[in-house]
Design a protein around this nucleic acid. Sequence first.
RNA 1: GCGCGUGUAGCUCAGAGGUUAGAGCGUGCGGUUCACAUCCGUAAGGUCCCUGGUUCGAAUCCAGGCACGCGCACCA
Length: 757
Amino acid sequence: MIIDKRYEPKEVEGEIYDFWLKNSYFKGKIVKGKKPFVVVIPPPNVTGSLHMGHALNNTLQDILVRQNRMKGVPTLWVPGTDHAGIATQNVVEKQLAKEGKNRHELGRAEFVKKVWEWVDEYGDIIIKQLKKLGCSCDWSRQRFTLDEDYSAAVQKAFEHYYKKGWIYQGERVINWCVRCQTALSDIELEHKEVEGSLWFVRYPLKLKTKNEKLKTKYITVATTRPETMLGDTAVAVNPTDKRYKNVVGKILILPLMGREIPVVAFDAVDKEFGTGAVKVTPAHDPNDFEIGKIHNLAKIKVIDELGKMTKEAGKYAGQKTQQARENILQDLQQKGLLLKTQKYVHQVPHCYRCGKIVEQLVSKQWFVNMQQLAQPAIEAVKNGKIKFEPKRWEKVYLDWMENLKDWCISRQIWWGHRLPVWQLKVKIKNEKLKIYVGGNPPKGYTQIDDVLDTWFSSALWPIAVFLKKNSSSEKLKSQNAKLKRVLDIFGEDLITDDLEYFYPTTVLSTARDILYLWVARMIFSGLEFMKEVPFTTVYIHPTVLNAEGKRMSKSLGTGLDPIELIEKYGADATRFGLAFQTTGTQDLRFSENKIVASRNFANKIWNASRFVMMQIANSKLQLKSQKGLKPNSPADRVILEQLNQTIYLVNQNLDKFRFGQAAEQLFQFFWHQFCDIYLEQSKKQLEGKKLRGNTQQILVFTLVNSLKLLHPFMPFVTEAVWQNLKKTVSLEPALISSCWPHSAEATRGKPKASSKN
RNA sequence: GCGCGUGUAGCUCAGAGGUUAGAGCGUGCGGUUCACAUCCGUAAGGUCCCUGGUUCGAAUCCAGGCACGCGCACCA
């Protein structure tokens, strides 16, 4: 026998993968009149390396893709990477810091060049890792969100929104990361519990005359951020609060600054919290900003973009916020205005990229008005055009969509798509700044510095991956009326037949934490630009937790490198082990045991196949179809029935994204029903001449179909066996493109009900 | 605060209104000529979180509670 008695993944995986590549099995082809099965990969960050979540998600996608490919459906899985604005910029900045430099010394052009160099050198790591995992992506279609054509599409999308009047520049209190030096959208924050304090500060009421005697001399406010009080321009109380009934409209003297500020009424003030009176800092709190709008309050910015006190902060100017806080508290204490201090645990926003505390400050940024975009995206889910799996995520999605705020899309970093916004160099006095939006600005205009939120471009992923001039697909030939609109938006140059054929995609499989950041935005973008949903099913895979039930994360040191698992146990074992643990309802508390068990299973498949091959060597066996099989013994009949049930159950479970149950069924069937029972039985049957021929037939038949069913889960070992088996039995040239078992008996043959009729 | 999820063998998890509740790993015992020791056979191991309700029958459905995890939120 040619093959070894132990399955050695390392010896076959590379070779098998090359074999698939060489024969273009992963290529997506347009087959007119046939509805394709299309998946776009959630593009990993170029800075990333494969973590367990990627390994899981891409295993599951590959299972679906391979199954559909075998079913004979035109199948395409588009791979690619995301430029990941802030994340990538941070990586390169860190590298620069090691050399004692910063990006400002380099200048914008030089810095961006450096990032591109970094991307060229390291950006492909994760792609190579996906290949190791066995992902059957169409690599000829690999995309990067900063590809030339992709960028063109991003620009067109911006222009489109702008023309509609949905993009505007506005002054708001935004989240500002002092470390990354950029604005962040609300969902780019991570709220972490921080043990802080609640300080109670007295704001004296202004006396009408020097000697006026007041019943109440102070209003006490509670704050977690005393340094912002320097920017206070009011104190707000609930209009129904009896305690403050008589002070609304009165004037207070802001301590330390001496500024006169009014007491105003505002519904949203919680009477129960603190003292029921809240200091109002319109420049540093979004709610206060709203109060300020209503009461026409000044916005006094006391903290700047570097996290230091501005000159508006009087004697505290130039101090870092923390330092200013301490000084202010000391000064208040001295003046007897600090009533008390309470320990207070609260949620503080941190930057999702660098982990530093985020400042809130007033700033001029670009926004997308969400009003008209949200509604169709809500409808599409409500009317079932997009289904969530598991279904409960639908509610999570809808809750967010129904409470959408405008999307802050400008970032003050350098790595990304620059806004196609230009302004006239010379600012004429008393005249609004002249702005041009688009690709060819008139003379004298310069482009503004901001770049777009990374998620603005990834929102276009299911569209933009099919927009490419020099793609394998040619420019649009068909004059499909449906695409007229898209042509108008993106222009002739970008539209290809691919877009017409492969959009909308079928399944989007992703992690729950980017449901808002990415999935929701793809949905409304798809509906806006294509007037059609970008995918019909959103599958949310379980989160991979470690043994302690903590989320696996590299930064937390709770990660586990899937590549190490592949090295140790093989890609098949890693994949099967992950799929096995994907049960649909629960998060996945990762256990290496399951990978070990799967490694053993791969070996079992290998050896059972070896046994079958030994039995049929030199037998010149002509493989019969199921109809041609003649089960002679009870064991024959049982194994064929069990195979049919397995085909049925695997299909059922995969249709419902029940990967674990499908894997379990295959494991049970192959190991216990086929190997433990039938293979043992066959040894007796093979002895006598009477049963020998049919037993051989059934052995091969069962093995061949098992390999097919197992292939999406364990592509390497099954293909390796197939290639060997092919030498003695006439089979399709490759398992990957062979025909998925779907005999009439199997599709109809539910697990047999004991009483028919 | 609101919402979501989970609780079943030592561990990780399936299952689900109806005999005796299952798997993998782990554990005990026995087994190496004859595909595989990454193996085979066999055994032990469960108050299905608690309380109440519906039912002929509940681990399963309902209500309440407890525990853990997660998401959202403008309690300053």
